[in-house]
Design a binder for these strands. Structure first.
Length: 579
DNA sequence: AGGCACTGCGCG
DNA sequence: AAAGCGCGCAGTGCCT
């Protein structure tokens, strides 16, 4: 009798032992478990690297920011993982999962993202626990039990393959996020300093304002005829403006721009300088740029819709003004790409609205909307399309949206029905199955008051307003969330394709100099619908091809044969300046 | 001193 | 120019 062919190891579950050692348990394709293996913490990287070469299992671990930075520090990348914390968050809420009771009962997995230390200190794998108050469990038995619960829950989903794809993409995103923080964005400190000096003057002493800000502030005070006017406190500034006869109800730029007074031009200029100085000035540079690398902290799944959030470093609000400061290393280049109008394209695909798909056939979907005859100008098209996805009811946007309803009935029906569901307190789901959170207790309270016998018209107005607010949230959730899924599918595929490029000889990161993944192209930046890859110059063309190919693949894997294009604006450059 | 709400502004 | 969605962060002012 011959031995049966050995079963493929599909997963390898990792857990921390009580003694700080790490336990690994293989799980075969048929669900059977292998023997427990234990390695010392020091041996972990070597163990993972060896298994990655020979078996390439999907690593299953409690949460990626806890496990992965240590491996990366040792030069070990993994191709695939299951992040139990992120997967739990998706599965426990997913409407398509029939049996999630046990998952919901496992409350110890309901933990917000652990925030990794942006500067890893040596081999402190579980150092996180000392700084964050809450953490998911890291032990092997807990991990095995949770993984089993998740497999069972997934099997009861209406479309397990689809939801499973979301879990894989979400987990791949978690790997990419840690890799990007570890690698960092190549940052030209001298150029940043030059830009700051040009705008603000020399760097001021700690606690002082830059010379240019002081000067402009004096201009404002002179024009107001108020030498004491405070420009940094909105309430005080508002009083000063009113005293000068400027009738504004707030101090925001858009309202100031509507008035005409000699103080307003320098005031708007002051606000720009103040913003640059406080948000991305020298202090920010000192804190977030080290060794020529900007290392923001990404939080995959940090937004309810599935978008990433960030925690520290402000990666989601990097001003375009600063983009020229991103500079590739000598001999390297950036390949940057963003998707034009990702959200309406996703909406067209989800709703199989062929008219909207047709409008998106070219590079500019808004031009296509104009060509469809729905509206007259590109500006109108943009305002109308955004208004449709956000639920605008007033102004130009509210006026233009009904025109889209005639030209793109299927797309509009999808967002309108999503809004209606939310107005009634319901939940909606993205294309791959991420379900929106139900409204909070306050929602039901307000509705109950409005439906009570003693309800005033005020109560009813409030209830309607709260219902519509929630409707706008669910309306946008399906589109924003599905767009986030498309982007995750894109970068998940992209990072694995990039792993295969470049020299395989030495992947050991030299983090002291900020150089990661020597001679290998790697993602350094991701922001909702755009990516930047840092690559050896000789591979840039190849990388650009891969970036484009993976965008096509993402569309196919998400939406199959639905004929919706996701065209990229793609650039190869030394600096990440937006073209 | 530290927590919290609020405003204002950067990003998609 | 916002409107209509989703965020993070700095600064201020008020609270304990």
């Amino acid at each position: 009798m011959t031995d049966p062919a050995p079963l493929t190891v599909r997963w390898c579950v990792l857990g921390r032992g009580v003694d700080g050692r790490v336990t690994a348990v293989d799980i075969q394709a048929d669900g059977s478990r292998g023997a427990m293996q234990t390695v010392s913490f020091a041996e972990l990287s070597e163990y993972v690297a060896e298994r990655e070469r020979n078996a390439a299992p999907r690593w299953v671990w409690s949460d990626t920011p806890t496990w992965y930075p240590t491996l990366l520090e040792a030069g070990v990348r993994v191709a695939r993982c299951t992040d139990l914390r992120l997967s739990h968050a998706i599965l426990r809420n997913a409407a398509s999962v029939q049996r999630a009771d046990e998952l919901r009962a496992a409350e110890e997995w309901d933990v917000a993202a652990a925030v990794p230390d942006p500067e890893p200190r040596g081999l402190a794998l579980f150092e996180l626990e000392r700084t964050s108050t809450l953490s998911v469990p890291h032990g092997i038995e807990k991990a095995l039990a949770e993984f089993a619960r998740q497999r069972e829950a997934l099997a009861t989903a209406a479309e397990p393959a689809r939801l499973g794809f979301l879990l894989a993409a979400e987990s791949a995103g978690a790997l990419a996020a840690v890799e990007m923080s570890t690698a960092g964005v190549p940052w030209d400190i001298a150029e940043h300093d030059r830009l700051l000096r040009e705008a603000l003057g020399a760097r001021p002493a700690s606690g002082m304002k830059p010379q240019r800000m002081v000067e402009v502030a004096e201009e404002v005070r002179a024009a107001l005829g108020d030498p004491q006017a405070s420009l940094d406190s909105p309430p005080k500034l508002l009083r000063a403006l009113k005293n000068a006869g400027i009738e504004v109800s707030s101090t925001s730029q858009w309202e100031l721009a509507e008035h005409s007074h000699p103080a307003l031009e320098p005031l708007l200029r002051y606000k720009k300088l103040a913003r640059l100085f406080t948000a991305n000035g020298w202090t920010w540079m000192d804190e977030w740029v080290r060794d020529g690398r900007y290392r923001p902290v990404y939080v995959p799944g940090g937004v309810v819709t599935g978008r990433w959030a960030s925690s520290g470093g402000g990666a989601l609000q990097l001003p375009r003004q600063l983009r020229p400061v991103l500079r590739a290393d000598p001999g390297w280049l950036f390949v940057s790409a963003d998707v034009a109008q990702l959200e309406p394209r996703v909406l067209a695909a989800m709703s199989t609205d062929h008219a909207m798909a047709e409008a998106g056939r070219g590079k500019d979907l808004y031009a296509g909307v104009v060509a469809s005859g729905a509206v007259a100008t590109r500006d109108e098209a943009k305002i109308a399309v955004l208004g449709a996805m956000y639920g605008a009811t007033t102004g130009d946007s509210g006026r233009l949206v009904p025109r889209l309803r005639r030209s793109f009935p299927r797309a509009m029906r999808l967002v309108d029905e999503s809004a209606e569901t939310g107005e009634h307190g319901g939940t909606v789901s993205t294309w791959l199955g991420r379900t929106s959170p139900p409204p909070g207790a306050e929602w039901a309270e307000v509705q109950a008051v409005a439906n009570g016998v003693n309800a005033t018209s005020r109560d009813e107005d409030r209830a309607r307003r709260v219902a519509r607010d929630f409707g706008r949230f669910t309306r946008n959730f399906v589109v924003q969330g599905t767009a986030a899924e498309w982007a995750l599918a894109w970068i998940a595929d992209l990072r694995t394709r990039l792993m295969d490029l470049g020299e395989a000889t030495d992947t050991r990161p030299a983090t002291a100099s900020g150089v990661m993944f020597e001679r290998r192209p790697h993602l350094v930046f991701f922001l909702h619908d755009e990516i930047i890859v840092h690559t050896p110059a000789e591979l840039a063309e190849k990388v650009a091809e891969v970036v484009a190919e993976t965008a096509v693949t993402a569309g196919r894997r998400m939406f199959g044969s639905v004929p919706v294009d996701f065209p990229l604006d793609l650039r190869i450059s030394e600096r990440a300046e937006k073209g």
